[in-house]
Design a protein around this nucleic acid. Sequence first.
DNA 1: GATGAAACATGATTCTAATCATGTTTTGAG
DNA 2: CTCAAAACATGATTAGAATCATGTTTCATC
Lengths: 233, 233
Amino acid sequence: MLPFFEEVPLPYKLECMDSFLKQYCSSEWQEFINFHKIKKVVEPNEYVFKEKEQTEGLYIINKGKVKVISRDVEGKETLIRLASDGDILGHRGFGGDWTYPISAMTYEKSEITFIPINTFNIVAKSNNEFTYQLMMFFAEELRRSEEKIMHVQVKNRVARAILTNYNAFGPDKKDPTRLSYTISRKDYASMVNTTYETVIRVLSDLNKEKIISVEGKSIRILNLDLLNQLAYI
Amino acid sequence: MLPFFEEVPLPYKLECMDSFLKQYCSSEWQEFINFHKIKKVVEPNEYVFKEKEQTEGLYIINKGKVKVISRDVEGKETLIRLASDGDILGHRGFGGDWTYPISAMTYEKSEITFIPINTFNIVAKSNNEFTYQLMMFFAEELRRSEEKIMHVQVKNRVARAILTNYNAFGPDKKDPTRLSYTISRKDYASMVNTTYETVIRVLSDLNKEKIISVEGKSIRILNLDLLNQLAYI
DNA sequence: GATGAAACATGATTCTAATCATGTTTTGAG
DNA sequence: CTCAAAACATGATTAGAATCATGTTTCATC
């Protein structure tokens, strides 16, 4: 007689690995992980791990701001994503030749938990539900990586990047329309695959159109609706 | 006492789902799948499944040639990949809102095995090793999706597309330098995100440079080394 | 075999964004 | 506080590819 399984819950956001572990691993396995995990503090502008390094494990950000970047053959970098509290880093180093295909670098001093690959594998092979959910998480990441960015004008891509920045690092607590941390024009450029000159021009345009307000390095969102409209079409 | 696990084998190519199932599921589970799977024959230029449809299951190509495409907001299509014998389709429909984010369409009459999502879930939740390996497969797909194509000239992208075509569908058996099936200029265009006019121009250039030979619709590779060089840098 | 549609092909023109050039402001180290 | 380096900013020029326009070939169907 075969067991009956409930429908799979959605979505697989996996915003917080800690709660994910708690949800799908028994308390003894949680203890096992707690015993083997390592806490690290990474200074600003330091690598958490580097492209081509051996995949040693999984990183979870306790507190901090990190960019995930990839360098192409010519050395030009592309910013893949922004990560902060609760986000996972390094899972893209799984499989293949077991090296990280990307690098992670801190923007500010960050507190990061490291789970060695062996620990992870033991947990994964002993907790079916955990592995199943993790498989779904990867499936979700794959879906997300599918998002079409091609043949969309730079202006739209920059708008999207501002929103990504806003969603990843959130608003300033005392001044909620301003981004709590604005990444550099160069980082915007590598995020939308353009040059920093073009980013500056686009930001300047958006500023003139009163969609955002450029205040030195920092950015304030004046019209979220228009920005969203620009970003998603 | 915790079990010891061997190192994870690599790579997770998963070229053939059938052998994958055989490798990681016990014979009783294989029988379970065999009992629940459905054989379908899809005529040329028909959809296997369509974007936005409910995810109903996984497809495995027994014999045939298929393109996987995605349509953006404006209706412009992007060709994501080419698939043939042994390849999996539809796994990107997993997670999120459980709809396929992409469509699959046959080039020629194809024989396809369908595994319903329920069957799949039951197997996944009962075969830890299977699920673990599948998680790694998804991780691999994620790695592959990372490949930088941006800010590479159209010529290089077209060269890459020709090689993709060649690798996916193979050479003509009686004439090994010619592609067994050449996709249309339009499909090349949607593969490299350009217009079909541009594809035609690039093919014409490659023809003049004696790297390929354009013989009507069909393409012959004259200089694989040069083509590879163009494709990968 | 005729015929209309789709695919292939090429030239002319336009436009987006890269590149180059130059200058200003901000930031951080000593 | 000083000074150099990095980041920001803007204008001029160029280049790669899209778009438009037009014609030819191939292919499926009656």
